[in-house]
Design a protein around this nucleic acid. Structure first.
Lengths: 215, 215
DNA sequence: CGCATACACTTTGCATGCGAACAAGGGCGG
DNA sequence: CCGCCCTTGTTCGCATGCAAAGTGTATGCG
């Protein structure tokens, strides 16, 4: 349980305690130190994070609104995403990220493209596999697709869906390194070329690839 | 301010106080007794609802997670949806509801279709215009599209987007009665026929119609 | 020996209280 | 007369305390 305290300490800026707790718990869930289905005992988690129950409860309520935790009877449990929901989310992402890619095609600054490409190359060249680096590269690519589509609402939806898919824990990430990198590079190339139809197609193909790998 | 207390009283089942408050405030926002941009004074609203600040704050945090209120500095304000965001949401809905309609085509039980059709007819035949009835019919039609698509994640996204578009207050609903009813009937007919492409097209056309009416 | 009841403990729900940040208004000095 | 600072009131952030609901265990009775 000591790692939990560390994760909390990582978020020690000058801000409202309640918000820091929210960020800390979010991180605990994303990093799967709290995994799906875990029931949350308020006083225990509050102690670990070094705060009283009030700000923790507020953070949990907010997380419930965001869909990261759910109330089961009287207590909060970390949301568990099963295969069915994961696949459904991928279907929706196929539609949305396809659209976003089409909208972004030709609008991404060359500098951003260059940076993301280099990170993918570095990831492929890395001597040992680091899940964190994989996630980060993934974030970069999909952010590229979202952020230049000129539709913040669309971007926000995609971000939320990506969060959900990330909660699906069974996925074996390491196996996805090569396919992800390959498909990401294709998406980036399409974005660069400015061909909207191609970008849409590549983004959708990426989602379908993930889908097939998970059945 | 007395109406506010009434809205609260409407939600007086046997449940956790915090959840009742959440439902009450949601209703206050949807019914625009609290409108976008209003700053929320915790103690005042808590008094009106007849609870202490703690459950109210928890409800507000949850609403923040859901995106119905936002924190501005130290206090909560009701989220204001502007024209830009409204139009962006419609664009996303065009994609998602199109997809949902295509998926639902031919899968909606005849009884459900019949019920919704009758309500549209009743709405058109009503001697006076009732916004509530208009909203309810709208809900029914779009729920038809969502609920039979076999993808709860997709349905949930659409529901959330519809919430956002509903917060856009400038829209003059009465002017939309005829076009909405007409387009809704076309969507329903397409769903009934089982032609996925047609259903997608009709749903998208409905969104584009809303879009054009708002520019 | 099995079952039911009561008791103790854990955990949550909510209210209240206090300290601190922020806003406003008035008084004082320039 | 204008501007600055200080004072006062309001509102928020958080901790704590208490009551109620739930859970598990042990004990007594059938």
């Amino acid at each position: 349980m000591q790692q939990l305290a560390n994760a909390a300490a990582k978020t020690n800026e000058e801000a409202a305690l309640s918000d820091r707790v929210h960020a800390a718990v979010t991180e605990l869930i994303k990093s799967q130190q709290l995994h799906g289905g875990d029931i949350i005992v308020e006083s225990r988690l509050a102690d670990i994070l070094g705060v009283s129950r009030t700000p923790l409860r507020e953070a949990l309520q907010k997380l419930e609104g965001e869909g990261l935790v759910v109330k089961n009877g009287r207590s909060f449990v970390v949301r568990a995403v099963g295969l069915a929901e994961y696949l459904q989310s991928l279907k929706v992402r196929e539609v949305l990220e396809g659209e976003a890619a089409a909208l972004s095609a030709g609008r991404v600054p060359p500098a951003a493209i260059k940076r993301v490409r280099e990170n993918i190359d570095a990831l492929l060249a890395a001597p040992v596999y680091l899940p964190e680096a994989h996630w980060q590269s993934d974030d970069e690519v999909h952010s590229l697709v979202c952020d230049y589509a000129g539709n913040p609402v669309l971007a926000e939806m995609i971000r939320h869906l990506r969060m959900v898919t990330r909660l699906y824990e069974t996925l074996n990430l390491a196996d996805r390194l090569i396919p992800d990198a390959t498909e990401h590079l294709e998406i980036i190339e399409a974005l660069e070329s400015g061909e909207a139809k191609l970008a849409r197609q590549k983004a959708q193909a990426h989602m379908r690839s993930l889908y097939k790998a998970s059945i």
